[in-house]
């Protein structure tokens, strides 16, 4: 195996531009893959966030007593579709408001607890349960307004689906493209080295001795592309984290979990070995007749 690695190293070193071209194609393929995976994971996380957050918010009228709130909460707890409820008093609402607008003193000056309504945040089992619960709440005389952020969840669900389908299609296409590029490059190298192959054959080299460096070369290009992409993606996520955080708000996705990034690297490496291996193996089968 050491000898095969040495031969692979020599093959790559002696044709640096082909090696660069193959690695760049793999880099682009894995860049697309990793970006789509991160986007899919991010949107999934956002979806989970919105699904786990109180999705129906009922605002109480002025003068609502604690007893009114308790009655509504008790009634809701008997609903199997409701997973939890949380009462937010006027004071608590003011705290939340202050926390969210702590960098804007002008907004803080104008607001007191009196102008903020008390509310009840209700989580449901599924997004489909939101509307029926909202309807129940709307019938309550002490409730002034009910907000159902169902459209956010629906948009996110569609967005996640689009990312998965589009990403899957583009990545699938790029994988096939990368495999063909590896096949062509390794095939070209086999043709370029036919004298060497012929000499090795006559010297008593086994077919595996001749084939293995070509297959390892294909895998090398895949692995190089995957590692390079991963490093750049990770660095990019880290560098742009403050900027991205502004977009995703309270969704807990950044900083990206290192375990997620390790899994992404592991998955990319497996896929890289597969794509590089398949491309070079196909080239060996097609062009290397021993």
């Amino acid at each position: 195996m050491n000898r095969a690695i040495e031969f692979t190293r020599r093959n790559i070193r002696r044709t640096p531009f082909q090696a660069l071209a193959a690695s760049m194609v793999m880099f682009l393929t894995f860049l697309a893959l990793q970006i789509f995976v991160i986007m899919a994971a991010g949107s999934q996380e956002a979806l989970r966030y919105f699904e786990s957050k109180p999705q129906v918010i009922a605002f109480f009228k002025e003068g609502t007593t604690n007893q009114d709130v308790s009655l509504i909460e008790t009634a809701l707890h008997q609903e199997t579709r409701v997973t939890s409820t949380q009462f937010v008093s006027k004071e608590a609402a003011l705290e939340i408001y202050r926390e969210r607008n702590k960098n804007d003193p002008a907004l803080l000056e104008l607001v007191t607890a009196n102008i903020l309504p008390a509310s009840l945040e209700i989580s449901t089992q599924t997004p489909q349960d939101l509307q029926p619960i909202a309807e129940i709440l709307k019938r309550e005389p002490v409730i002034s307004e009910v907000i159902v952020p169902q459209d956010v969840v629906q948009t996110l669900t569609s967005f996640t689906k689009v990312i998965r389908v589009t990403g899957g299609t583009i990545v699938g296409f790029l994988m096939v493209f990368a495999t063909l590029v590896i096949l062509m490059i390794i095939g070209f190298k086999i043709r370029l080295k036919r004298n060497e192959i012929e000499i090795m054959r006559l010297l008593g080299a086994s077919p595996n001795f001749i084939r293995t460096p070509f297959i390892l070369e294909g895998i090398f290009y895949g692995v190089t592309g995957a590692i390079l992409t991963w490093a750049i993606t990770y660095a990019g996520l880290w560098y742009f984290q403050p900027f991205l955080q502004g977009y995703i708000g309270e969704v807990k996705f950044l900083p990206v979990n290192p375990l997620f990034m390790m899994a992404l690297l592991g998955g990319s490496l497996i896929l890289a070995c597969f794509v590089g291996g398949i491309g070079s193996f196909a080239a060996v089968r097609r062009y290397l007749k021993i």
Binding site: R201, L202, L203, G204, A205, S206, P207, F209
Partner: peptide, 10 residues
């Protein structure tokens, strides 16, 4: 064949 060819120098 590879093993066999190792007995022959060309």
């Amino acid at each position: 064949i590879p093993q066999f060819r190792r007995k022959i120098g060309m």
